[in-house]
Amino acid sequence: MSATDRSTFVYVIFIRTTPERLWAALTDPKFVRQYWFDMTVECAWTKGSPWRLVGADGSLTDTGEILEVDPPRRMVIRWLNEWKPELKAEGPSRCTIQLEPVDAAVKLTITHEIDRRESRFITAVSGGWPRILSNLKSLLETGAIATTSHPGH
């Protein structure tokens, strides 16, 4: 499949921390809630285990499965929107999370892609990722988050 049959967004951020601390920040539900607009992540973080994102009001927003996991380096999540029927209809996306140590920091690369052109789902998540990552960076480096508002609120 050529790249043009896909919609892909790539996000890169450098965070002054260790891969182990960053991995914990990505997988510990209590920590995730602090930088991910009050969302709770439910997952055992082993290959094949179900993955779920639950909103602050208890509603299920996204579901999926862990396709690959290699702590503290890489994970791939099969990710399906459950929140809006038109986004769910696009089918599952893939989110690859990669951690690479660079000097005294970790380069975090998030690649979110779906096998269709001009995906509305990928556009919808594109508003959220930069803020989530910015919050995550502030939290790990300074202990406080920068923004609290969810996109679209």
Binding site: A3, V10, Y11, V12, I13, S126, P130, L133, S134, A146
Partner: peptide, 16 residues
């Protein structure tokens, strides 16, 4: 192939 992607994260930093 080597593909180039726009990374919007630093623009978010400018915004904040």
């Amino acid at each position: 192939e080597k593909l180039h992607f726009l990374n919007p994260v630093p623009l978010q930093d400018i915004y904040e």
